[in-house]
Amino acid sequence: MNTVIYTGLSISFEEAENILKAEYKPPIKRGDLTKLLQQRDDVEIIGIIDGVFHQSPAVAHKEILQALDNDIIVVGGASMGALRACELYPYGMRGVGTIFNDYKNGAIDSDDDVAVSFNPETYQQMSESWINMKYNFQMARDDGIISDQEKDDLLEISKNTYYPKRSFEYTVKKSSLDAEKQKQLLEYIKDKDFDIKYEDAKKVIIEIKKIKEEIL
């Protein structure tokens, strides 16, 4: 089954290829799906992981609905894919992963929660997503590195920071944590090396792989 997956930020093309051989394209923007459907009639599965938010207009709902109307399976998660899947799952788009469920359950509700800035030539991520900061600070709280109040304060600082400037170091340095605790927290996050968007991106690709195996 011919499969097109839009990613490159949450997971690299190389890592994605190691999970599933497919046609991988850069983060989706408005018009990409319309163009794809106009030029090709052989696509059977579309995966949406990453997409642009503010650099260009985001992929439109009607583009995804058009793909669904053409009996194309559309799976989303991790970032833009999670947001659109939450909005369109009643119409047949399939959502996968923790972030999709967070949108669906109302724990998050904005594209700002998953937005990052990136180098458009290399797809290198230049800032940290708020949702990943949320999960890392929660883990630090659960492991006794910071208190509930300190976690909440850090999340408020990061939420109030314009998304291209978000980073763990920037947020921690702006907090009221003392120097020793700042160092401890940043070392903890570095050692954990946890990225919820990366984990969800893998889930999207694995889900598509399962769909292909079931159909074949």
Results as ranks from 00 to 15, higher is better:
residue 15 E to L: 12
residue 178 D to M: 05
residue 75 V to G: 10
residue 196 I to P: 02
residue 16 A to P: 08
residue 120 P to I: 10
residue 62 K to E: 14
residue 15 E to S: 08
residue 94 R to D: 00
residue 25 K to D: 08
residue 173 K to S: 00
residue 134 K to W: 02
residue 166 R to W: 00
residue 63 E to R: 06
residue 206 I to K: 15
residue 152 D to L: 14
residue 36 L to Q: 08
residue 210 K to D: 15
residue 180 E to T: 14
residue 142 D to I: 05
residue 49 I to R: 02
residue 53 F to S: 05
residue 43 V to G: 11
residue 144 G to M: 05
residue 170 Y to P: 00
residue 94 R to T: 08
residue 139 M to R: 11
residue 140 A to F: 01
residue 143 D to H: 14
residue 187 E to L: 10
residue 202 K to C: 10
residue 92 G to T: 10
residue 175 S to Y: 14
residue 24 Y to R: 10
residue 23 E to R: 14
residue 86 C to K: 11
residue 132 N to I: 00
residue 43 V to L: 11
residue 113 D to Q: 02
residue 39 Q to W: 04
residue 124 Q to R: 14
residue 20 L to Q: 04
residue 100 F to P: 02
residue 183 K to Q: 15
residue 35 K to I: 04
residue 176 S to V: 13
residue 151 K to S: 06
residue 164 P to Y: 00
residue 80 M to T: 10
residue 40 R to A: 05
residue 30 R to Q: 15
residue 60 A to E: 10
residue 109 D to S: 13
residue 138 Q to P: 00
residue 143 D to N: 14
residue 149 Q to Y: 11
residue 7 T to A: 14
residue 119 N to M: 01
residue 109 D to C: 07
residue 176 S to L: 13
residue 190 K to G: 06
residue 41 D to C: 11
residue 137 F to M: 12
residue 4 V to Y: 07
residue 153 D to N: 12
residue 204 V to P: 05
residue 87 E to D: 14
residue 67 A to Y: 06
residue 168 F to D: 07
residue 170 Y to K: 13
residue 13 F to G: 09
residue 116 V to S: 03
residue 9 L to F: 06
residue 133 M to H: 00
residue 129 S to Q: 08
residue 174 K to E: 15
residue 142 D to F: 01
residue 117 S to Y: 10
residue 150 E to I: 11
residue 29 K to S: 05
residue 189 I to W: 03
residue 163 Y to E: 06
residue 216 L to F: 03
residue 145 I to W: 03
residue 84 R to T: 09
residue 202 K to Q: 14
residue 65 L to Q: 12
residue 9 L to H: 03
residue 166 R to H: 05
residue 213 E to V: 06
residue 161 T to C: 01
residue 149 Q to E: 15
residue 125 Q to N: 09
residue 162 Y to R: 12
